[in-house]
């Protein structure tokens, strides 16, 4: 009885666009939904450092190298902001990492594709960060306070990422015929996986209804995907690249692009762990975490020593 009243008050707050804060009462499913969504988001930022890190030592100029390093450092920071937000829901950082390593928690499938050429780094910044921005701009208005604040901070930093990616793509596309071919090839491989980043169709998405009712998400997967397509196709045209969708065409009457259907078999296959790099990504993350054990142990030992020194003094 008491819970029904609390639930009504909770929903009234959501409907009035008031934020929910960590110590406020919330339904258990709201909490678990956020724990899953925010940790998945955090894991994606951190795993996303790997395909880009692949090119630090081979960046074609000093400028592109410092830029790539700064971008990857930002991704690490974004992961940290999101883990911090996730921790306010009553689960520790260790527990979230454990869920990632055991495979219980997922991360965005886009990072299970390899970055084979330098143009792929362009495609990642332009398309992958571009898709992430569309999603994150919308999530700034999410109902959970700490998640919303993390999104505001991330969005401020994210726009340089997309611009650096598009700059790489433009440089390649407007360069020699070989460079243009490389840019087109990167677009061909990253276009569809980028569209898949928005998740299944609304009709197929297990979580959409609750997420919308509780205003965790403010726009649906299909709405966000459409926004991304509408703004990105023009950018491809400007640099003379062709979006690899035979059904893509401009609808003059509606003033918008029409497009083809995603290969959902590929989507589910990669989600289930059979993408080109799933195993490699997870192996690397576990190794980095285990290799860091001595650092964490040393830091704790040092802190304890300092504390006991203080007690003596």
């Amino acid at each position: 009885m008491e819970d029904i009243k609390k639930l009504e008050e909770f929903q009234a707050k959501i409907d009035a666009d008031l934020k929910i804060e960590p110590k406020d009462w919330m339904p258990e499913e709201y909490r678990t939904h956020l724990q899953r969504q925010i940790s998945q988001h955090a894991h994606s930022e951190v795993i996303g450092m790997q395909p880009e890190g692949n090119w630090i030592s081979r960046a074609p100029s000093l400028r592109s190298k410092v830029v790539l390093l700064a971008k990857i450092q930002d991704e690490a920071g974004h992961g940290q902001y999101l883990y911090s937000a996730a921790e306010t829901l009553g689960k520790s950082r260790d527990e979230y990492l454990e869920e990632l390593h055991s495979g219980k928690a997922k991360y965005s499938s886009i990072f299970n594709y390899p970055t084979l050429t330098w143009a792929d780094i362009g495609a990642v910044g332009w398309l992958v960060d571009g898709a992430a921005i569309v999603n994150q701009v919308s999530l700034q208005r999410t109902s959970y306070g700490p998640y919303s604040r993390a999104m505001v901070r991330i969005c401020k930093e994210e726009s340089f990422h997309q611009r650096q990616g598009y700059e790489i793509m433009a440089t390649c596309a407007l360069g020699t015929p070989e460079q243009k071919k490389m840019a087109q090839d990167a677009l061909n491989r990253f276009w569809w996986p980028s569209l898949m980043m928005f998740g299944p169709h609304d009709s197929e998405s297990a979580h959409t209804a609750n997420a919308m009712k509780w205003r965790i998400k403010r726009e649906t997967n299909d709405e966000l995907r459409d926004k991304f397509i509408q703004k990105t196709v023009q950018q491809a045209e400007v640099i003379g690249l062709t979006v690899p969708d035979p059904d893509l065409k401009w609808n003059e009457a509606d003033g918008r692009y029409e497009y083809g259907e995603i290969n959902w078999d590929e989507f589910w296959n990669v989600v289930k762990g059979n993408g080109p790099c799933n195993k490699q990504r997870m192996r690397h993350h576990i190794k980095a975490h285990e290799d860091g054990t001595w650092v964490r142990e040393a830091a704790i030992a040092y802190a304890e020593k300092q504390k006991s020194k203080q007690l003596v003094a």
């Binding site: 921790e87 260790d94 604040r149 964490r296 704790i300």
Partner: peptide, 28 residues
């Protein structure tokens, strides 16, 4: 927010963006 975490304790961070302004919560 367990503090038995192997990642160390949680510290809240407050930042003053300019001299003269109050420190504002940024995260942890």
């Amino acid at each position: 927010m367990s503090n038995t975490d192997h990642q160390g304790d949680v510290w809240e961070v407050f930042i003053q963006s300019k001299p003269g302004l109050p420190h504002k919560h940024a995260g942890s």
